[in-house]
Design a protein around this nucleic acid. Structure first.
Lengths: 238, 238
DNA sequence: AACGCGATGATTGTATGCAATCTTCAGCGT
DNA sequence: ACGCTGAAGATTGCATACAATCATCGCGTT
């Protein structure tokens, strides 16, 4: 089982160009180069990637399906601005799905998987020690990829796709409502999760995963922000 | 067979036409007017619904995203032909998600919800007593809608969307691998589920839901069909 | 007869043009 | 000053044209 490649690292080439653009934009949203509320016009995206509006439109439609982009008729597409309620639902869904994935992963994990995890954690640690916004962005993405790696090992392609969506939306939520801003606080917990996985200790693993999600959610301030409610309602960029 | 009842129920002049076509095709797939493997060419779909290929293509892309349609570059789109492994994953996902939804629904259900369920069950019973393929189709769809109703009451929009996808794919799986063909065997179980929901008996409800899914899956014959393997690999229609 | 191979038709991939709709803002009246 | 109105500009919605790619089939060679 090839879990080393969580995302399709293979660049466009002969592949679907709309898919490639979708992946680029998704990454940009996930590691917060694109802020919630930012406008993504078809012409602009098309010009940026040197394709026609047709292809750009297709990519935006995919993002809209995942809930990363909200598109309004005759108005345009905007990076999603999840409400506190949506944020709660994202984490409720993760609390439901991730422990199950972890449990399944426990039964299926191979030595090669363990090593891929270890390598991934080394990368996370390296990014954590680096300075600069680029390292921060890479760290955010890597943190999410850890969970996707787990989903890969779990072996259920459907749940893995659900997780991809949930991870992406989590990034948005954390960007909007995170108190500490650093989602990195969870890195140590990733280590613990890997250890439990290596020991195939289902109970401990499940508990750690749940705890990890709780910690992520505990870092959020989901109180409705007074001044921003109107701006959110009007869908203005940040 | 008339998939698109053209010139009919006001094809949403204001709303998105691609979405309307998506919904029609989805229904057609779910209640098996469109068999797994059937080809859906852009021109054909466009002609059927009297729109350009652009719009038809958009609808097909949505279906591909949900896993109901598999589209291959330069070849076309086909109604999905889920493998036994995919079938198992669909039901594994449902076993994970539906009890959680039901539990949440227990806490949130209102009297109006109960009555909506009761009405729905009466409709299911009526369809069950009727004869003819149309009634069968409607029954299949109604059976799935019961679960979506539960997801609505559950109140988590994300999980509800996941369920929509899982229900649709379940229909495909049952069409392909169902032994009895009648997914109706579960109607009585729906009654039991509603009763437990009315009593707000979380334990019983959860158990009944799980049992129900088990029964659905038990009706499947997931052994790989020898002669069809090649045809599946070559993606030939029916 | 079997195989390779190129012409041909069918289908999707993409770009572009026009129509429809929304936003903005200047101009006018109250 | 405020609000209304309507014209101009910007953006999406959709259809169509053309290019690229794939499947099919006939034909010639072995």
């Amino acid at each position: 089982m090839n879990i080393a490649r969580v995302g399709n690292d293979r660049m466009d080439g002969a592949e679907d160009r709309a898919q490639a653009i979708h992946d680029h934009l998704r990454d940009a949203i996930v590691d917060r180069r694109l802020a919630p509320g930012a406008k993504l016009s078809e012409s602009e995206v098309g010009a940026l990637f040197d394709v026609s509006r047709t292809v750009a439109r297709s990519a935006l439609q995919m993002l809209a399906f995942e809930g990363l982009v909200r598109s309004e008729r005759n108005r345009g597409a905007f990076v999603a601005n999840p409400s506190p309620e949506e944020a709660r639902q994202v984490f409720a869904s993760r609390r439901l799905i991730e422990p199950a994935i972890a449990t399944e992963a426990c039964a299926r994990v191979t030595q090669a998987d363990i090593e891929a995890f270890a390598e991934h954690l080394r990368e996370e640690a390296r990014l954590l020690s680096e300075r600069g916004p680029n390292a921060r962005r890479a760290e955010i993405k890597a943190s999410g990829d850890f969970h996707l790696l787990l989903a890969s090992v779990g072996g259920n392609a459907i749940l893995k796709r659900f997780m991809e969506e949930l991870i992406a939306r989590s990034s948005l939520v954390i960007a909007l409502y995170g108190k500490s801003g650093a989602s990195s606080c969870g890195h140590g917990e990733h280590e613990g999760i890997l250890a439990a996985l290596r020991d195939r200790d289902v109970q401990r693993l499940s508990g750690l995963v749940l705890h990890h999600i709780d910690h992520l959610e505990a870092d959020l301030d989901l109180r409705p922000k007074d001044g921003l409610a109107l701006r959110d309602a009007l869908q203005m960029p940040g």
